[in-house]
Amino acid sequence: MASRSEQINTILGQLVTNNGNDINGAALISSDGILISSRMSADVNADRMGAIAATMMGVTTRVVNDLKIGKANEAIVNAESGYLLVMPVATQMILAIILRQHANLGMIRIEARETGRAIAELMSA
């Protein structure tokens, strides 16, 4: 039986490989910014990624609270040569995904939600 962290790594791996070249990396981070698991390309420092994604999620949560528009489902940064998507998953965790330019954002948002559900299931097991 694979350990929980191995299982998380497998789930992230599936997300990355299922989407061809669209995903450059994915990471699971605790809401206080500590990396739990990552599938990142070597040129991205995963620890820094964790700190940044958690801050982005924190700011997003703060924004939606201030605007009174309910719970934050995700935040997407659309940049010149790619995207960053962050979303809260399970309890006090964040899924961060780096997408390449022209990636199929719609499809990946659906897959990301499924990945989030799989992680939540694993964590509650």
Binding site: S30, S31, D32, G33, I34, D47, A51, A54, T55, G58, V59, R62
Partner: peptide, 23 residues
Amino acid sequence: LLLFGTPGQERFDFMWEILAEGC
């Protein structure tokens, strides 16, 4: 150690809360 530095101005105090989580 993971070192998280906050902004200093009080108008960014919401970042203090975000960054203090779990320290």
